[in-house]
């Protein structure tokens, strides 16, 4: 048997490893699982409220929400090879934050995570709170703040959007590393040692993936802008959606 055949055979016979970038089921001790779940609940409730407001304000928003979930689905199913020789995936949270605001994203992110838990065995129920906190809360908020901050410096809106999505993605994995290090501190070097280890695995792998996420976010927003769906200046604001609504009714009366 040639060496190559052996590798192929091994590949087939080895139990498949779950590839997702979230904390795996059972890998957070009970107390941390409870703490992160409790920490996330208020943001989830806020998200529900903001989502309801959105839909009440503009019923077409439901379609936009569906698109935001769809974008997150596509991106999180694409596990990209990275320079370190391991794979990771984007989250799609930055794009959603730009269209429906960071608050609603806590609900959208949770939907995606729950889907992955039940159908793909990625992430987990006991780690859902922690994963949602990192991906559905911290990621979108960081994207939003970076965008706002960059906009003030006067850089092009696309650069601001790219950096927002890029840093939002990275921040999610930064938080994941912190969560893991808190739960599993190194025996010798404690929290910092463990954090260094985890960020070493996630960090460099995540950089090219985060760049891809930033680029794809700009691409889709470009498509929306060129079809007059949203104005560049109205990203991350509720105004953008009102505009869509008034335009629709304006056409109706013509």
């Amino acid at each position: 048997m040639t060496k190559k055949n052996l590798y192929v055979l091994l590949l087939v016979l080895l139990p498949t490893q779950a590839y997702s970038m979230h904390i795996m089921e059972g890998y957070l001790p009970l107390q941390w699982s409870v703490i992160w779940s409790l920490a996330f609940v208020p943001f989830f409730l806020l998200g529900l409220r903001s989502m309801k407001r959105l839909v009440a304000l503009a019923p077409e928003k439901r379609m936009v929400l569906a698109m935001v979930v769809a974008f997150a689905f596509v991106l999180s199913s694409l596990k990209l090879p990275s320079v370190t020789g391991s794979s990771s995936h984007a989250t799609g949270m930055g794009f959603g934050a730009a269209l429906v605001g960071p608050a609603s994203m806590s609900v959208v992110g949770t939907i995606v995570l729950v889907f992955q838990v039940f159908l793909l065995a990625h992430g987990g129920l006991t780690t859902l709170g922690a994963n949602a906190f990192a991906m559905a809360f911290v990621g979108p908020i960081v994207t939003y703040l970076v965008y706002r901050g960059m906009k003030k410096t006067g850089v092009s809106l696309r650069v601001a959007l790219f950096l927002g999505a890029f840093l939002g993605n990275l921040s999610t994995y930064l938080v994941t590393s912190i969560q893991l290090a808190l739960a599993h501190p190194d025996e010798a070097s404690g929290f910092m040692g463990a954090f260094g280890k985890f960020i070493g695995v996630f960090g460099i792998t995540q950089i090219p993936v985060a760049i891809v996420e930033g680029l794809l976010t700009v691409v889709v927003v470009n498509i929306l802008v060129s079809n007059d769906f949203i104005k560049e200046n109205d990203l991350f604001s509720i105004k953008g959606l009102r505009l869509f609504k008034s335009k629709v009714s304006a056409h109706g009366t013509k």
């Binding site: 490893q17 795996m24 059972g26 090879p81 391991s86 039940f118």
Partner: peptide, 26 residues
Amino acid sequence: FGGADGMVVELIDEADRYTPWFDNVW
């Protein structure tokens, strides 16, 4: 190009001698 989370699991398993206390529902 295995998943980065799989590598993390290996790190935890060897450093902490940790056994997951809950398994995937499915």
